[in-house]
Design a protein around this nucleic acid. Structure first.
Length: 106
DNA sequence: GGCCTGACTTTAG
DNA sequence: GCTAAAGCCAGGC
């Protein structure tokens, strides 16, 4: 039963992202059951009704580039946090080759 | 129920 | 390698 809305699923998926790993918007959308709703995912993050409850900074674009983040510091802080958590970086982008999250729960 | 917005993704030039 | 355009979707008013 999918009583939960798309956004609720997205938030839960965000919380499931392990430390030191990152996921793409499209991936979260895919796990939520809508592979093409990556855009909607971004909107939900922007609204960010539960900022401290969801590590939305672990969500990046498909090429590993850090996009968005309306939080304090913006992209800069976001990158900093990820580096701190152990995410591999290549210049100003996430090294998806090493740090992309492989969701097991589907 | 319809219109607008947007932190996406992909393809083409 | 970069820019532009199109397609897609859900939330909010």
């Amino acid at each position: 039963m999918s009583s939960k809305t798309f956004k609720e699923k997205i938030y839960e998926l965000c919380k499931k992202i392990p430390k030191g790993k990152v996921a793409t918007y499209g991936q979260l959308a895919n796990l939520a059951g809508h592979p093409k709703a990556a855009r909607a995912v971004g909107v939900l993050m922007k609204n960010n009704p539960n900022a401290p409850f969801v590590p939305c900074h672990r969500v990046v674009s498909s090429n590993g580039n850090l996009t968005g983040y309306s939080g304090k510091g913006g992209i800069k802080e976001k990158e900093k946090m990820l580096k701190k958590e152990g995410v591999f970086f290549s210049k100003s982008k996430v090294d998806l080759t090493k740090s992309k999250w492989f969701s097991n729960n589907k």
